[in-house]
Write a protein that binds this DNA or RNA. Structure first.
Lengths: 347, 347
DNA sequence: GCACGTGATGTAAACGTTTTCCAAAAGCCT
DNA sequence: AGGCTTTTGGAAAACGTTTACATCACGTGC
């Protein structure tokens, strides 16, 4: 509010001078309030307020050897748009971090070899205290790197090929798609296709397994031509669905490894005049907010993304407070939410 | 790669020692390479590479008095999910910033009185060098504040009640909805409703004006009951559409101030068994990526969000390089993209 | 009355850089 | 060789904090 009389740098020195104390005292007022007498404390607080003083974060951080920030890098595929999943995750993270006085440093990076460099920059220039990593891969060099650097992090998703323990929060994707596939089988489907993505992505691997397991239990082995690999974009879901339906005996149901691809699938069905949910069933995965507004509303495997974001922050804070990683490994059980994009196969 | 022999702090001092020069020289190698002879430069670079040295950003920033980051705070409505708009904007921003070696500091904040405090913290603790502000309001305290603090920023959207010039990039929303409404009129619609949002939001104000202007040109004044205020959420679009259709002579077309509300509108129509695009037309605004996957695909006013993000960064950098704000004010012309959610009114 | 804890403050050394100023070295030209 | 400019490198002072340590005054118990 009040504009300071002269416009000297508004640093701790100025507050000290105006309050007639040393800068150490000012600092103590903020960091260790009961180490300074009530009288001077009050005086310092007053002048600080009057001058709109706020400690310079760079000074603080340099001295304290921290960054007061956690990083997250979101993969941004070139032309396509990013998965709404990340926005939800981000807001989940943001809410928790604000309370802990931490900021969120968001870097975007096209997936590929440059990605690791991105993490390295953040870590090695000490720009962040910790990281959240998402979309883990089976052989995840990011995790390997962070472990080796001993940089705290939590992962959204596991990484199977890493032996050393680390903190993660994952959904049981195998169970999720086991459930979904079981459900389709129960409805009478026998020709069920799977639109996935490179099994190098850890979650894709599990989701595929769930699908296969459910089929195996009823003695079915899927036609290899029905297990396709997309790239998580709605466009690839669209394209692959088209090819699936072009076959002589097309599947009556399609499991998509994420909602975005499921959206593409629905679109393809629509254009080919297939009634989704009646002639061909589609089930997605993620339950991104928009999946309830598609036509028909998408049946999918629900992931409480925002809540996961919040929990990830809790885990990260625990990690920063020295809680052992062994206690910071969680796998949540997803649930199937049925809307209108699934149904019995045509007779 | 190579693990340094002893594990002393990997700072500039160590590089200097191992290279047999002073720290000043090391620093110069990175900041002012041609002030040091080729021979020593090579030697320093070698040892730096060998030790995996990377300047500590906090040290750098403290010294240089900057933060090497720009902030953006995204409003996160409580229960609802955030507008996909922001994810697109974020990735647009991210791409440009990476090149300029700047990081993006994302803070989430529920809209309301705490919002300004959020900006203040970022600015006054010198955590960011500049800010991007989105969703400007007609009386925008954030802009006022940043102007007063002389903190560089660019706004996505104008703020009409601010007299002092500032950098902005906006779409001509009035024209956008003028176009849309004109189009509906051309199709024969006469009962056109508008689902907006508080005119305190600057863009809402303009979009409403465009709608009114188009109607006025053909001598129509809208039934006041057809101008409704939502809150930008799909849920409010859904609800308001229901009330619109519950009237005895419901509108044959609905203009929605953003795509999210339009999605809700489509959903409401579907549930009431109205054929969207045939019985009732719906036009949205933003062209968020998913609007082409709704049913029917949404006709909307296109905003090149990601591109705007990139341009905002360019403007910000220009601003930081001292370009006058007068040169950094742009209003882009939107275009109407017609998909399937509009059509002639029933006869 | 004296040594002694105790509580409140100040002093100064960090934290890891950049950059200003100097001094030394090295060219270059008569 | 002598004087000049130009390169090159080092010493040291910042940048704004925090914090270990020293200081000092003030009871307090003996």
């Amino acid at each position: 509010m009040s504009i300071s009389s002269n416009s000297l740098p508004n640093d701790i020195r100025r507050v000290a001078a105006e309050a007639g104390v040393s800068i150490a005292t000012v600092s103590r007022v903020f960091n260790n309030p009961n180490r300074v007498s009530a009288k001077t404390r009050r005086r310092v607080l007053e002048t600080a307020a009057r001058l709109d003083y706020r400690p310079n974060l760079m000074g603080q951080n340099l001295r304290k050897g921290r960054a007061q920030a956690v990083g997250v890098v979101i993969p941004t595929p070139q032309g396509r748009f990013s998965d709404p999943f990340f926005l939800e995750l981000l807001t989940g993270l943001g809410e928790g971090l604000a309370e802990a006085e931490l900021d969120l440093l968001v870097t975007t990076c096209p997936p590929g070899p440059q990605e690791l460099a991105c993490y390295q920059r953040l870590v090695e220039s000490k720009r962040v205290d910790a990281l959240v990593i998402a979309r883990t891969r089976r052989h995840d060099e990011r995790i390997r790197y962070l472990l080796q650097r001993q940089t705290p992090f939590v992962a959204h998703g596991r990484s199977d090929q890493i032996s050393q323990p680390y903190a993660y929060l994952d959904m049981d994707g195998r169970y999720g798609f086991y459930l979904a596939c079981k459900h389709l089988l129960g409805l009478g489907h026998r020709r069920i296709a799977f639109i996935g993505v490179s099994s190098e992505l850890n979650f894709a691997h599990y989701r595929l397994e769930g699908y296969q397991q459910a089929l195996a239990e009823v003695g079915l082995i899927p036609d290899p031509g029905w297990i396709l690999e997309g790239d998580l974009s709605e466009e690839s879901g669209y394209r692959l669905t088209q090819t699936l339906l072009a076959t002589t005996l097309p599947p009556t149901a399609i499991l998509c490894a994420n909602d975005l691809m499921a959206l593409g699938a629905l679109q393809a069905l629509r254009e080919l005049d297939f009634k989704a949910g009646q002639e061909v069933s589609v089930i997605g995965y993620d339950d991104i907010p928009l999946s309830q507004y598609t036509d028909p509303p998408l049946s999918t495997v629900h992931q409480p993304i925002r809540k996961m974001g919040q929990r990830l922050v809790e885990m990260l804070l625990a990690r920063l407070n020295g809680v052992a990683v062994a206690e910071l490994q969680e796998v949540w059980v997803p649930e199937l939410v049925l809307r209108r994009s699934d149904g019995a196969p045509p007779v």
